[in-house]
Design a protein around this nucleic acid. Structure first.
Lengths: 333, 333
DNA sequence: TTGTATGCGTTATCAT
DNA sequence: ATGATAACGCATACAA
């Protein structure tokens, strides 16, 4: 199935009785060319709805105007609204700048899909939507030479990365709760392979340090979404005389709330709940849940903008952006 | 920012002391060429990790090996797990066949993003993930000539479309509920601009017809996610002496359940609830909810496979696939 | 200001 | 079995 044959720059040149160079210049605006000719060409182009062939342009300019967007595959992660919202922000900025987005969904820990995109020269740059603690994608992208940007923080200086200030946000929420008298808080953490899980945990611990209270490590449970049995987890932790549970993300919080319901645990009377991340998953939770609200779309926009600036040769820097607000609700009252 | 200069077919030719034609043939396997030479070339390629430049190939073959995936923008729709799961299925099949996916998120009802993709020759074909009743994208794609496929049903013969059998599924679930004695069912419908909302409604009505009961049109509420106040909606309908509410999708069901909770309406004692669509949004709902479970990933895979077959010149047909199962749970018991 | 010629990396046609 | 050359559609260095 071939592409439909379409108008080329040659056709225009012939129709207008000029050379293709002239047409090319009229389009790009580069080089000296008369107003009149430019106008003539542009008019013709509009009338005939000519669009330059992006592939041919790509071949000569060595730019694709495509950005690769790498999405995780893990079931726990993939469905999170975060990635969609982020993608939307990226899409808006990219479109406006004339870039298109190619997605690459990782399959397990294999990075073949990223490799294909990069090695086939299908993208000018890559956005990584999350970082693992020991990340093969990052390793590969570094040695491949393609410009790329990581959403999230990663222990490495020479890496372009943009992140919500998860550390401060988690520290702040934890501090507020401690100040409210909720001193014994359990932490239900996500995948410990994800870098962000580390960061959030650190924020949690930093709050305790700041408040001068030692952290009870026996109240910290990582990889909660893996061993799946939240009922057991909750019953376990309830025996430890806690004031509340801090959930590292929306999915964990949703699970905890659901299980509490089943177990007949009343929130907030018997137990307070808060989440380090808010999303539509928690929109309808009862009671309304205390959480940190991030603007994922905005994050996506900033990330896309930064990468595109870099692709166009500008100097860009890693950033940690505030981008959050703490929202206190019934679940911790 | 230029692409890193890489090994070309010429470099290989020179290194091996043969012509580029020979190298090209060794790679593609086309044309007569000796075993020995082929082997020599292939070895060299492996050792030096050569990958052909996809852009150059594209220029001559007029194929991009890219598929455009069009996603809706509406907030109610975009976050639905359906699109992600579908995308995953598409991605798996596409990768396996050597295709990459370019996404295009519609902005409002404007179709500029699709146009860009098509007019710039960035994709060989397009997947539309949902159809509106009067769909501009479809109109455009038809006249543009690019091969495309629509997920969902649409009132037009010469359109390649693949759909879950929403009609039968909704009819079946409704029938089951009626047979259980739930004769007065309200229907809370989604966006009436979406074609699928029509189909589901028809399935609902067909069940009544089949059971010989007239449909009470005053119990049908469309566009529920638009006028947003579910509390009012539910209180209204409760006064009409109904047996239960059928929700057209997961999001609507989640809202209804949440509001019932707030209003102190017990499910299923005071009111039965069922949903025409299941997803992780309902995973933790209490009580467990009767619904139709579709395999979105599988749908995506079939769609991608069909489009790719078409792109490669095969004869393909529109299909309605069963792909669902009715799951009866506590919410209607 | 405009045109000619060449190259981008690959495939395909036609010789040899 | 292999090689020289044109062609894909565009951009650009160099000429005119």
């Amino acid at each position: 199935m071939k592409m439909s044959t379409r108008m080329t720059i040659d056709d225009i040149a012939e129709a207008l009785g000029v050379s293709k160079t002239t047409v090319s210049r009229a389009i790009s605006g580069k080089g000296r060319i008369s107003e009149k000719t430019t106008e003539r060409v542009k008019t013709y182009i509009k009338e005939h709805n000519y669009k330059p062939n992006a592939v041919a342009q790509s071949l000569v300019s060595k730019k694709t105007y495509n950005i690769g967007l790498v999405l995780p595959n893990e079931n726990e992660a993939f469905e999170l609204p975060f990635f969609q919202n982020c993608m939307k922000g990226i899409s808006i900025v990219a479109s406006a700048a004339g870039y298109d987005i190619m997605i690459s969904i990782l399959e397990g820990r294999r990075i073949d899909n990223i490799k294909r995109l990069v090695e086939n020269h299908k993208v000018d740059g890559v956005i990584l939507t999350r970082a693992l603690v020991k990340d093969e994608s990052i390793k590969y992208l570094k040695q491949s030479g393609v410009p790329f940007i990581v959403i999230g923080s990663y222990d490495e200086k020479n890496l372009l990365q943009i992140d919500n200030d998860n550390y401060m946000a988690c520290k702040e929420l934890t501090t507020v709760l401690i100040a409210k008298g909720l001193k014994r808080l359990a932490l239900f953490g996500g995948d410990s392979d994800f870098y962000i899980s580390r960061t959030r945990r650190k924020g949690f611990e930093a709050a305790y340090k700041k408040m001068g209270i030692p952290v009870d490590q026996s109240l910290i449970y990582m990889d909660c979404l893996k061993d799946s049995d939240f009922s057991v987890l909750i019953e376990n932790v309830m025996r430890k005389d806690i004031d509340g549970i801090l959930c590292m993300d929306d999915k964990i919080a949703a699970e905890v709330i659901a299980k509490c319901n089943i177990l007949g645990i009343n929130i907030p009377k018997d137990l307070r709940i808060a989440s380090f991340y808010n999303s539509s998953l928690l929109d309808n939770s009862i009671p309304a849940i205390t959480s940190i609200s991030f603007d994922d779309g905005r994050l996506g926009q900033i990330v896309a903008k930064t990468l595109i600036n870099k692709l166009e040769g500008a100097e860009v820097q890693s950033q940690v952006i505030k981008n959050y607000s703490i929202i206190l609700k019934e679940s911790t009252s």
